[in-house]
Write a protein that binds this DNA or RNA. Sequence first.
DNA 1: TGTTTTTCTTGATCTGGATCAAAACCGGCG
DNA 2: CGCCGGTTTTGATCCAGATCAAGAAAAACA
Lengths: 240, 240
Amino acid sequence: MKHARRSKPQVRLDESLLTHLPPFSKLDTRQIREILDQASSRRYDIGSAIFEEGHEAERFFMLLDGYIRVVRITPQGEQVIALHIPSGQLFGIAKALGRETYPATAITAAESLALSWPTRLWDQFVADYEGFATETYKTVGNRIGEMNTRIVEMATLQVEQRVANALLRLINQTGRKVPNGIEINFPITRQDLSELTGTTLHTVSRMLSAWEKQGLVESQRKRITVCDPHQLVILAAAKA
Amino acid sequence: MKHARRSKPQVRLDESLLTHLPPFSKLDTRQIREILDQASSRRYDIGSAIFEEGHEAERFFMLLDGYIRVVRITPQGEQVIALHIPSGQLFGIAKALGRETYPATAITAAESLALSWPTRLWDQFVADYEGFATETYKTVGNRIGEMNTRIVEMATLQVEQRVANALLRLINQTGRKVPNGIEINFPITRQDLSELTGTTLHTVSRMLSAWEKQGLVESQRKRITVCDPHQLVILAAAKA
DNA sequence: TGTTTTTCTTGATCTGGATCAAAACCGGCG
DNA sequence: CGCCGGTTTTGATCCAGATCAAGAAAAACA
């Protein structure tokens, strides 16, 4: 993990950073200014932990750029990826869950840029800024929905369908159009994909090889491009 | 499903019903009275649906007595139990998740009694009653925690350990002391347990038989008693 | 009291994926 | 440029647990 610094904005942050993001979109310029003036901004190298499970939740965050994976570690040291968070979302919002500590670890899946505020400002944000509360609870609701879906998938689907679903979700959240399809916009290993679907890197590797032969996907090291999303959707839902 | 009626309280509901429940515990008698006067109370037979996934979230609920399972149905018609809710908790709180519809179906696992309020009162409750918001967000946080745990378990543990964990969670939430151990306080089938752990009723049945031979549990039809919780904890955590 | 329905048990077989093992590949770095 | 650590691939084997199949036992019903 390389050096990274937190900075009170010497260069004042631009208001346009936040104006179009849902939790702040109903606010006027003055309010955005207030919010920004209290924020710290910081860049994180890929693979660094923004906060860790169980630690005191001192700050909450808004991901401006990059990509984050929310991870839990089992007693046996295995990692499970609980969630991916795309840019433009709040995270580390323990306060919204009535918690004093972070429930999981946040790791950057790509170089990322995030704003953060001391947790003590949370209640103030909720009280003062219209739409902030509503939008954050929507975020929470969506994450619950996602987790629910994961549970159902793990309980009922085969590995092949789980991996297909995971890929589809990833290209939806972070897909980038490239000549031959849609590429996942950050480096992702077979290992990562296996931690996301509760399987092994071996199985994922075989699966991708097979799909590549069928022209469904293309992949290089840490890069996956889905060429035929529609076919993948079919696979993802197939009964047998 | 037998007849069940909703009633505006002809017999006024007693204030002591709510005074000790977290979301209301900071309120004075007058406030509790207000809340109760706006509530409908209703009894539900075992196995009935209180509300269904996808439907308009017209009301939110407080479970006074009984037990509820939150269920999702897959496109293929398989059921997955997402969560169990013990008495004393709010449920159906779509509003707290920024949703307009219920995200899952709520089925009574035992005869149950619940109060409910029209969703339009939600914001008012949050604004007027101290501690209500905080406590409900704690509830949400706990449920997220539970779901997280389920995901991690499904991704990393063997079936035996998942079933053991499920049993332990059940006796913690609803255990009732009986001469030979702790009994799960509502009727539960092997099928239910399998839907809770993502396996089949056959496997669960074999497992319980084996445990019964070892004196770990005792079970009759729809009844399970854990005789040796400690041993079960060991099983639940075992690496191999 | 006999019949039907639901739940539970137990055996036999099969298989999706894990595990074990080894090699090839790729990129960074000294 | 050649070595080394992190990825990826692919083969071979194994086994936990699903699936298939039949009854047995308990409750519900009539």
